[in-house]
C-alpha cells in the first residue's frame, strides 16, 4: 500500500512536470497568438507572415548577441525595433496594395482577404528563403552564455530560467496590450477600426495609419516572442516560425478569431493538452492535438469558444 502510494506520487510529480512544460509551450503559442489575433481583429485577414516575423526577431537577436553579447534587455529592445520595421514593411508590401478600394464592401470583402492571404504567404516564403541563404538552413545554436536554460530545481520539479522569462514576457505583453487598447488614444482607434472601419473614417480616424500601428505593435510582439523562445530552446532555424505559427493560428480560431484573451487561454490550453497527450501518444502523434482541436472547434463552435458578441481585439 505504501509502495503503491509512493509510485503514484512519483507519477504525479512527473505529470506535474509535464504540465509545467506544457504551460511554457502554451505561453510560447500565446506570445505569437497575441500579435496574430491583434492583426486579424483589425483587418479581418490572416497574416501568414507572422511566423516569419517571429523567426526574423529571433535571428536579429542572435546576430546581435553573437556580435556584441549585450545584456538581455538591450537584445529585447533591439529586437523590438527590428519587429517594428518588419511590421511596417510587411504591411506596406503585402497588405497596403490591396487596400486601394476604400469603400466598405472592399474593406471586408472576400477578394481582399484571399489576396492578402497569398501576398503575406509570399512574403513569408521570400523572407524564409533569404534567411536560409544568409545563415544556412541548419539549426544555429544560440551562444551558450546567452541561453536561458539554467535549471532551477523546486522540489521534484525542474524549471529553467527561460520558462520564467517567457512567463514574465507573456504577462507583460498581455497587460501592456490591454493597456494600449483600453487606455490610450491609438488603442481606441485600433479598436474602432476593428469594430467598424467605415465608422472609423466618419469620426476622422486615419485608418491607414491605424492599420500600420497595428502591424507594428503585433510584429514587435511576434519578434520579441521569437528571440525569447530562441534563448529558451537554445537555437534558431529558418523554419522555426512554422509549427508555433500553426499552433497560434489554431489558438486564435479556438479563441474566436478576434479575442485576444480567448486566444491566450486557448494557446495555454493547447500547450497543456499537447504535454498531457505525450503521456498517451507517441511523440509524433501529439501534432494531432492542434489539428484535432481545430476541427472540433470548426465543427462544434464555429464562432470559437470565446467568440460571439464580444469586442474585437
Amino acid at each position: 500500500m505504501g509502495a503503491h502510494f509512493r509510485g503514484f506520487s512519483m507519477f504525479d510529480a512527473f505529470f506535474v512536470q509535464q504540465l509545467v512544460n506544457g504551460f511554457s509551450v502554451g505561453l510560447v503559442y500565446a506570445l505569437i497568438a497575441i500579435g496574430f489575433t491583434l492583426i486579424f481583429g483589425v483587418l479581418n485577414v490572416v497574416n501568414f507572415a507572422h511566423g516569419e516575423v517571429y523567426m526574423v526577431g529571433a535571428y536579429a537577436g542572435v546576430v546581435l548577441i553573437t556580435a556584441f553579447a549585450p545584456p538581455l534587455i538591450a537584445v529585447v529592445l533591439f529586437v523590438m525595433a527590428v519587429g517594428a520595421v518588419a511590421g511596417f514593411g510587411l504591411e506596406r508590401l503585402a497588405f497596403k496594395p490591396f487596400r486601394r478600394f476604400q469603400d466598405e464592401a472592399s474593406l471586408k470583402s472576400k477578394a481582399m482577404r484571399e489576396a492578402t492571404l497569398l501576398s503575406s504567404l509570399a512574403v513569408s516564403i521570400v523572407v524564409r528563403e533569404i534567411v536560409e541563404k544568409l545563415f544556412g538552413g541548419a539549426m544555429r545554436p544560440v551562444p551558450f552564455e546567452a541561453q536561458l536554460t539554467e535549471p532551477i530545481q523546486v522540489g521534484d520539479l525542474s524549471f529553467s530560467t527561460g520558462q520564467f522569462v517567457i512567463f514574465g514576457a507573456a504577462v507583460a505583453m498581455f497587460a501592456g496590450l490591454q493597456f494600449l487598447l483600453y487606455r490610450t488614444r491609438i488603442g481606441l482607434s485600433i479598436r474602432a477600426v476593428a469594430n467598424n472601419p467605415l465608422g472609423a473614417k466618419y469620426v476622422g480616424i486615419n485608418t491607414d495609419r491605424t492599420i500600420i500601428a497595428t502591424f507594428v505593435v503585433g510584429s514587435v510582439m511576434g519578434a520579441v516572442a521569437g528571440i525569447l523562445v530562441a534563448l529558451y530552446y537554445g537555437s534558431v532555424f529558418p523554419h522555426m516560425g512554422f509549427a508555433p505559427g500553426v499552433k497560434a493560428f489554431v489558438a486564435m480560431v479556438m479563441g474566436g478569431l478576434s479575442s485576444i484573451p480567448g486566444a491566450v487561454i486557448c494557446a495555454i490550453f493547447l500547450g497543456l493538452s499537447e504535454a498531457v497527450a505525450t503521456e498517451f501518444l507517441a511523440q509524433g502523434w501529439s501534432e494531432l492535438i492542434a489539428y484535432g482541436f481545430l476541427l472540433l472547434t470548426l465543427i462544434f463552435f464555429p464562432t470559437g469558444l470565446f467568440g460571439g458578441a464580444r469586442d474585437r481585439v
Binding site: R191, A192, N195, N196, L198, G199, K201, Y202, V203, G204, I205, N206, T207, A309, R310, D311, R312
Partner: peptide, 23 residues
C-alpha cells in the same frame, strides 16, 4: 482623406449610423 475632412469641420451622422457597436 476622410480624416482631413473631419478636421476641417465637416462631420457626418451617416446612413446606417455606423456606430461602434462593440464599444
Amino acid at each position: 482623406r476622410s480624416d482631413e475632412i473631419v478636421r476641417l469641420g465637416i462631420c457626418q451622422a451617416p446612413e446606417g449610423r455606423q456606430i461602434f457597436s462593440n464599444m
